[in-house]
Design a protein around this nucleic acid. Structure first.
Lengths: 147, 147
DNA sequence: AAGTGTTACTATCATTTTGAAAGCAATGTT
DNA sequence: AACATTGCTTTCAAAATGATAGTAACACTT
């Protein structure tokens, strides 16, 4: 898809997708938020080929979304943990899940709840300024300056 | 990635990604929300090969995210418009964009504003029940019943 | 000390997907 | 009649993916 060019694209959606625009990366991030950190945990959870997993983890690490952390010196073993940027991706994953719950339901479906109160969570995206739900009002994409 | 199996996955994120987990589909949806409807509009906007575009539009249509609409009988021409499910995907795109704005900034970046008031929009995902921002509290993924 | 297990990979290769370029069908326009 | 427009399809090379097997570095067991 030519990721290099996309990085110069003024669209923040395109920029996000440059390295996160494939299902494996997003599922790895899902599992990382779920608490998985190790190669074999991801591999077993996803049923992904190790070649793929190696490459995806490397890219996510290079892109600052995951970082390696040594958890054993002997034998030397590393795990992958979310960076701040990776943690900030949670709302995206949650909204993806919310769409799936609404439009790809059927059968048992995982839902999310507050870990402390046990209350089921209903995710919505809003404009923090006005409080209006995204989608409830017409929006416009704007490129600043002489674009 | 084996999309058939994913459809039976109880994870709504995985289900969403079964057919939306690639960059082209997401960029097509972005453009559709921007107002594009025609084959050549998408092709030119994205620089995508027509083979790819044909396949992606077909899948998105089969999956009920876009639908074909005849806009000219002679010559017979069709355009692609968002269905309700497609329109509901806007919050996801906006959150993807919000992440990109924060973590892939640099240079001129498109932002979104209210089309009527001109106010810039700051998208956040919250729990509609409590109003708490997603990410501000620990959450848990739950599979109901005997899972 | 030899064998077995664990974890995180790499190597190899067949299959699938993608991308680039060109072509085509059904019209409208000049 | 020739050219333009729109929405594709055909063809084929190149790249990505997936499956399977193997390796490296150690720990643990016998």
């Amino acid at each position: 898809m030519n990721d290099k060019n996309i990085c110069a694209d003024p669209c923040p959606i395109a920029r996000s997708l440059a390295f996160l625009g494939d299902a494996w990366s997003l599922l790895i991030l899902r599992d990382a938020h779920f608490g998985l950190t190790r190669f074999d945990q991801f591999r077993k959870s996803l049923g992904i080929a190790p070649t793929m997993l190696t490459r995806r983890l490397a890219t996510l690490t290079e892109e600052g979304i995951l970082e390696k952390r040594l958890y054993s010196e002997r034998p030397p073993r590393e795990e992958y943990v979310l960076t701040a940027a990776g943690r900030d991706f949670l709302p995206v994953l949650i909204m993806i899940g919310a769409w799936g719950s609404q439009h790809r339901s059927g059968g048992k479906l995982v839902y999310i709840e507050d870990a402390e109160t046990g209350q089921a969570i209903k995710p919505v995206a809003i404009d923090e300024v006005t409080g209006a739900k995204i989608g409830s009002r017409p929006i416009r994409f704007v490129l600043p300056d002489g674009g």
